[in-house]
Write a protein that binds this DNA or RNA. Structure first.
Lengths: 132, 132
DNA sequence: CAATTACAGAGTTAATATATCTATAATATC
DNA sequence: GATATTATAGATATATTAACTCTGTAATTG
């Protein structure tokens, strides 16, 4: 069980957009090049962030992507959920008499992780590092 | 990103072994049947728990698996690590100037989850439910 | 209109999960 | 000691998912 590389691309891209202008969009070409990934593939990933309402895209010349919310709003969990989905990490499909107590423990553990990812905002990291 | 079904099999099997005798081993046939999985496959999974020192196997007639430690010792994390490995859930392989601050956040989140899984022992659940 | 950019859908390749099959080794019981 | 029973190992098979690539379309700017 690992987070996908797509999630890594999404997180790094979002961090760049937080540090970039909220007016002038950044082209996927530039975003992709700095991460060593193909523009078409990154675009496919970013489209999911657009649909999640985190960023917006501008077509045409000088187009690209930019934040659509204030940067303080966006949490790690938002981004991860947009890419990986919101399904539980652990799903017991056995038919128990009662609820599966193992699943209950796993769910609690997952919630501990998610709580931390929800508390951490992108803005907490912005400008803290040389990106990618 | 999901926990594998193998992890689910391992957790349920361990819970059964905790509730079973520590002297008379339980055959994989029985363990497999109650979970609706093939004995050879489950055996392959359980062998990893044997190598991790959690359970021991007995060959031959009336053989099977039984706990090798006291049941209070074994945590969820022990079992999960034995099956899924101990690698980080998130690995940023970009070459940043400094350490990747995104990875740092992800690692903290993962540690929150692992802490909970390490604090929860199998014994906490034993006899609490009708198994599988 | 022409150039540039994002979007959508199909298809490809590689890796991983989820098994299955067969043969071998160990043990208890007769 | 022979036989039945059980775990183990290794090779192989199948399905699912990840990680892309390719091609064409739509939108926007100048």
């Amino acid at each position: 069980m690992r987070f996908s590389k797509a999630t890594n691309y999404a997180l790094h891209t979002m961090l760049m957009l937080v540090d970039a202008s909220t007016v002038k969009p950044v082209g996927v070409q530039q975003l992709a090049e700095s991460q060593g990934v193909s523009p078409t593939y990154l675009s496919k990933i970013l489209t999911r962030l657009v649909k999640a309402g985190m960023i917006e895209s501008v077509s045409g010349v000088n187009g690209g992507y930019r934040l659509s919310r204030t940067k303080d709003d966006i949490t790690f969990l938002d981004i991860i959920h947009a890419i990986e989905g919101t399904a539980s990490l652990f799903e017991c499909d056995f038919v128990h008499g009662t609820e599966c107590s193992i699943q209950a423990v796993m769910k609690e553990a997952e919630e501990k992780m998610e709580r931390h990812l929800q508390q951490t905002k992108l803005a907490d990291l912005a400008q803290k590092q040389t990106q990618v």
